[in-house]
Simulated scan of single mutants.
Amino acid sequence: MFMTRGTRISAVAATAIGSIALLAGCGTSSGGSGGGEEAAELGDYEGSVSILAWPGYVEDGSNDPGVDWVSGFEEKTGCEVTSKSYGTSDEAVNLMKTGDYDVVAASGDATLRLIAAGNVAPVNTDLIPSYAGIFDFLKEKDWNSVDGQSYGVPHGYGANLLLYNTEVVTETPTSWDLVFDKASEYSGKVTAYDSPIYIADAAVYLMAHQPDLGIENPYALDEEQFQAAVDLLKEQRAHIGEYWSDYLKEIQSFETGDSAVGTTWQVIQNVLESEDATTDVVLPEEGATGWSDTWMIASQAKSPNCAYAWLDWIASPEVNAQATAYFGEAPSSQEACDYRDDCEAYHAGDAEYASQIWYWTTPIADCVDGRTDVECVDYAQWTAAWSEIKG
């Protein structure tokens, strides 16, 4: 079984308090300048490195003896790895404020918060040889850089797809309308991802179906645009059977027939297919949200040289192939596909496919779509609205 996002972002109100407090102070920032300066050169390894990451990103064989890309790093560099897993992006943001970690693997709904708070430093990618091989469509993007300055190394990526029961939805769908405008046809059997960032999924749909709203980026919503997305999700709420953040629960829900249509990840369909479930997935014509996680270095890292070494190691083709396959996502480079046999299923390296994905990006008051004549709704307000939508 792949180690997948599992209990990833379920940032409901109880876990969002820290984020609200943080964004209240930096919500008008365009991302800030981060903490410290990028390294000009590297020195001797410090002998240890502390890493904060999603489950499945830092495996040393203790969970599965056959899954270990930490030992090789320790042997090569002499940097002993200590790691901690977190369950939500809000948790990661709060943990990074402690200064206890040298490296963090952050999703796009956390990266700009970390940069704005000065918790992570600019990264000199010239000091990371593996960076050169990473897909260009993952580099210098809104969620991992500010004003052309990189703040980390892409890990892998994936799209939030439309999953459907082929016995209930007999014709291959082409639109997200099944979970929005046509949700009443599957009332009680619609499922959606449990996170404030899901508001962006509604915005992606509105971009295509209500163009008069003028949405150019689903993470840059002014008050009117944001309210339209919230209203759409409140309408959808009446037809939701359950919201999910644990991938095992969604698998079970589709196997039992409790769910018939909803948002998902490719790895979930892979598991369902292996168990002969009557399901399939599609990337709808409107496009989709998705993720590209970023390895970032703490601005006050105690072991910056070992931190740089880890970023290079985890982005190297063979290691990146192991880590992203175990987690269930596309790797960050074409060379990594030499060590995987499932890149086609994940559309790895397909730039046209990737261009249809709106990667999670922290909503901030300074609109990430470039508008300066309005203020956009920041993540704190997204979190508050999500509680209202579900309530």
Rank of each mutant, 00 (worst) to 15 (best):
M1T: 14
F2E: 10
F2T: 15
M3F: 15
T4C: 10
T7F: 10
A13Q: 12
I17F: 11
L23R: 13
G25W: 14
C26P: 04
G27A: 13
G32I: 10
S33Y: 12
S33D: 15
E37G: 11
E38L: 11
A39T: 13
A39W: 06
L42Q: 01
E46D: 00
S48R: 06
E59I: 11
D64W: 14
P65M: 14
D68Y: 09
G78Q: 07
T82D: 04
S83P: 00
S85F: 13
S85P: 02
T88P: 07
D90S: 02
A92Y: 00
N94E: 12
M96I: 04
G99N: 02
G99R: 04
G99C: 04
Y101K: 09
D102A: 12
G108F: 00
D109K: 09
L112N: 01
I115C: 01
A117Y: 01
G118C: 03
G118Q: 08
N119L: 13
V120W: 08
L138A: 04
S145D: 04
V146P: 07
D147Y: 02
S150C: 03
G152A: 05
V153H: 05
L163N: 10
T170C: 11
S175Y: 02
D177F: 07
L178P: 06
D181I: 05
K182I: 06
Y186E: 06
K189L: 09
V190D: 06
T191W: 07
S195M: 05
S195C: 04
A202C: 06
A203S: 05
H209V: 00
Q210F: 00
P218A: 07
E223F: 06
A228V: 00
V230S: 03
L232H: 14
Y243P: 10
S245M: 09
K249M: 14
E250M: 14
I251N: 13
Q252P: 11
S253W: 11
F254C: 06
T263N: 12
V271D: 12
L272S: 05
A277D: 01
E286R: 05
I297M: 03
S303F: 05
N305G: 15
C306N: 02
C306I: 01
I314N: 12
S316P: 00
P317R: 10
V319H: 08
A323P: 07
T324C: 14
A325S: 12
G328N: 06
Q334I: 10
A336Y: 05
A336L: 03
D338W: 07
Y339C: 09
Y339T: 04
R340Y: 07
D342A: 07
D342S: 04
G349W: 06
A351H: 00
S355H: 04
Y359H: 03
Y359I: 02
P363A: 01
P363H: 00
I364C: 15
I364K: 12
C367W: 02
G370T: 05
R371E: 10
A380R: 11
I389C: 09
